[in-house]
C-alpha cells in the first residue's frame, strides 16, 4: 500500500501541492502528466531523504520520514535514474545489493532472470534500456517488494516491450503488489489500470478509479 497524505513540498522552486491519494495492495495506478508536471518529483519525495515536505507518505502503513529503510525494503524502483555500477555485471550487482534487503530470494531472482531473458554475466553498461528495466524488475521481485515505482519506462519503448510490461504489472498486482506507473504518454491512462491520476504544475488535478469514466 502506498499513500500520500496532503504532501506539499517546502521551500521555493517547483513544488508538489497538497497531493493526496491511496493505492491499496494489488492495484495499478497510472500517473500521467506533461513534462515538468511533477511526476518524477513525486517519486523523488518517496525515494530521496533530502527533500523536505509537509504531510505524510506511507509505504505499507509506515511513515517514510520515520523509518526510511523499512519503507525502502518494500519499494522497487524501475527507472533510468536508478544508478548502478556500470562496470559490474548483473550478477555482481545483485550479489552486492542482496545484503541490504531483509527478505531476499536468490531463487526468485534466478527465475525472474530466466523469465525476463536477463543475462547474468552482462555488464550493466551493455544492457539495453529494456534489459535494464527488466533487471530492476527482477531485483524488486527478489527482495519481495510490495510497491513498484515505474518511472517513464514505457516512453520510447517498442509495443512488444510495453505489452510484456503490462502483463508483468498485472501479474505483480495479482500477487498483491501496488504499482505506480509514471508516464508522460497521456494515452497510457486509457490502458487497463485500476486508478488514474493526472498531474499538472505539481497538483493532482484528477484522481479516479479507471472504471468510472
Amino acid at each position: 500500500m502506498i499513500a500520500f497524505e496532503h504532501v506539499t513540498t517546502k521551500g521555493n522552486g517547483f513544488r508538489l501541492q497538497n497531493i493526496s491519494f491511496c493505492l491499496e495492495d494489488g492495484f495499478i495506478m497510472v500517473l500521467a502528466g506533461e513534462n515538468g508536471a511533477g511526476k518524477t518529483t513525486l517519486l523523488k519525495h518517496i525515494l530521496e531523504p533530502d527533500i523536505s515536505y509537509q504531510g505524510r507518505i506511507l509505504i505499507g502503513g509506515i511513515d517514510i520520514k520515520k523509518d526510511r529503510n523499512a519503507c525502502l525494503n518494500q519499494v522497487a524502483l524501475v527507472s533510468d535514474d536508478h544508478r548502478m555500477p556500470a562496470v559490474y555485471t548483473v550478477k555482481e550487482v545483485c550479489k552486492l545489493y542482496q545484503y541490504f534487503y531483509e527478505d531476499w530470494s536468490q531463487e526468485i531472482l534466478e527465475k525472474s532472470f530466466r523469465r525476463f531473458g536477463v543475462l547474468e554475466n552482462e555488464q550493466i553498461k551493455n544492457l539495453s534500456r529494456g534489459g535494464f528495466f527488466r533487471m530492476q524488475l527482477a531485483l524488486g521481485l527478489a527482495h519481495k517488494a510490495d510497491v513498484f515505482l515505474l518511472d517513464e519506462v514505457t516512453g520510447g519503448m517498442d509495443p512488444v516491450f510495453r505489452r510484456e510490461l503490462w502483463c508483468i504489472m498485472r501479474e505483480l498486482a495479482a500477487s498483491g503488489a501496488s504499482i505506480v506507473l509514471v508516464t508522460h504518454i497521456l494515452e497510457e491512462i486509457r490502458l487497463k489500470c485500476d486508478y488514474r491520476g493526472i498531474l499538472e504544475n505539481g497538483r493532482l488535478v484528477k484522481w479516479e478509479e479507471a472504471g468510472l469514466e
Binding site: L47, R68, N69, A70, L72, L77, P85, V87, F100, Y101
Partner: peptide, 21 residues
C-alpha cells in the same frame, strides 16, 4: 568510490535507493 570510464562515482550514489544503514 568506483571508477567508471575515468569518472569517480561514490558508492553512495549507487546505494541511494537501497535500504542501507
Amino acid at each position: 568510490v568506483l571508477s567508471e570510464n575515468g569518472k569517480i562515482v561514490p558508492w553512495k550514489e549507487y546505494l541511494k535507493y537501497v535500504p542501507v544503514d
